[in-house]
Nucleic acid binder design. Structure first.
Lengths: 238, 238
DNA sequence: GATACCAGCCTGGTATCCCAAATTGGTATC
DNA sequence: GATACCAATTTGGGATACCAGGCTGGTATC
């Protein structure tokens, strides 16, 4: 079973019967997260309408939902793809630390922690041959699936929301193989602590992981901000 | 300055220029939170349309937003006011403990904690003569404003979301004067700890307060579930 | 050449119309 | 009386027409 697919499928209801609104929402989200539409770019309902072959009714519904996800915002009397906001990334790190640590503490206290092995398998499915997209996806899904194990819908939703908002920034981050390996090792260390039921250890490792991740991310984007702006991406300073 | 009003005003943009969608959203939210529309009740877009004198377009936009707030949900091919869900209340307590404790720790570490006095004043504005609605509102706003002091938008949003979802259940809770006084005292004790910069103490007091609040809430609603159902309210067991 | 002004276009906001599917209520059948 | 069935109604999903306000580009004036 593919955990990641289950997650996506559960959230988005991919299937033969998908409404126009879900269709537009999904495709538009993918274009934004995949940076096919750059941060800061203007969106018009008419453009989306013609781009996806749906009328304005489902387009507007999709825009409203993406707004609540923080992927787009209102710019006066129009829609704008959310810019990369370095200050916001710092706040998100604090937020996700709170909810992820709470979730991992809950999970470590559970009796049935078998789900951990599925997450470990997901991590192990990545190797040197794995494309960068896959590393990126697994890196996000690790935290989401870990939160899911807690069984708390609200912690899960919060983590998923945070990872969605971090997704583009993490994609833009320049990460060398060493950084990828370190993250991989840290993920496994967290899993080991949870597996052994050591909530305190798991919490500390996770906190450190999130803090380090935030520092590397903000530093990388801060250093690259000129290049990012040159690509037409709106970057808001910390 | 009225903190509570500022919060509402900031969130809802009350003013002379309010779109139909904001109008419908606000009124419908008030009807749901005020239990004028009972938990579990069916909603049709046509009814809302005629009830508020707006066409279906803004009605549907408002419904989409209220759905993300968890106040309504889809029931097959229709809309339903979210039932009172005792299991969910327990999960929300865990969630809000995570984010509120994180926020209060941040605030206790701030240099400028002057905002605390405004919150204390808000608490002190309630006395024996104060109507129940006001106690209810202040009890919710206390936690929201405390989170606002942290300066973290995401923690604030999370607390606001949690309090919105708890609002109806807390309104239905049978609280005697003793319980109100205890909550008032606990709130002040938390403020005192934050004021003195004792993050650890503030965190512990807040955790205990949330746990106690949850226990009383779930117990009260559990005991009253027959009465609630007799009033036509859908109550989902824990 | 700079500036004040105005018409036309483009935007999101709203109202309304159509549609397929599902619910419902009555009816005929056993 | 229970049940299978069918038509009318109602539902949300979608498409489209219209509107007011703001932006733009051109033009006339100084």
């Amino acid at each position: 079973m593919n955990l990641a697919f289950a997650a996506v499928n559960g959230a988005l209801k991919i299937g033969p019967t998908m409404s126009q609104m879900q269709n537009v929402e999904r495709q538009l989200r993918e274009m934004i997260l995949g940076l096919e539409i750059g941060p800061g770019e203007r969106l018009t309902e008419r453009w989306i309408e013609s781009r996806f072959g749906a009328s304005r009714t489902p387009v507007r519904a999709a825009l409203l939902r993406l707004e609540t996800e923080g992927l787009i915002g209102r710019d006066g009397r129009g829609w704008t793809v959310a810019p990369i906001n370095l200050a916001e990334l710092g706040q998100i790190a604090v937020y996700r630390e709170a909810v992820e640590v709470a979730a991992v503490r809950l999970t470590a206290a559970l009796e049935d922690r078998g789900g951990i092995e599925l997450i470990a398998a997901m991590l192990d499915s990545c190797d040197a041959e794995t494309p960068r997209e896959e590393w990126h996806r697994v890196g996000l899904d690790f935290h989401i699936e870990l939160a899911r194990l807690s069984g708390n819908e609200f912690l899960l939703r919060a983590v998923r929301d945070a990872m969605t908002r971090l997704s583009r920034a993490r994609w833009l981050e320049v990460r060398d193989e060493k950084a990828l390996g370190r993250a991989w090792a840290e993920h496994h260390a967290i899993l080991a602590a949870v597996r052994s039921g050591d909530a305190e250890q798991a919490a500390q490792l996770l906190s450190a992981h999130i803090a380090g991740s935030r520092d590397r991310l903000v530093t990388s984007l801060h250093d690259d901000r000129r290049g990012l702006r040159a690509r037409g991406f709106a970057v808001v300073a910390a």
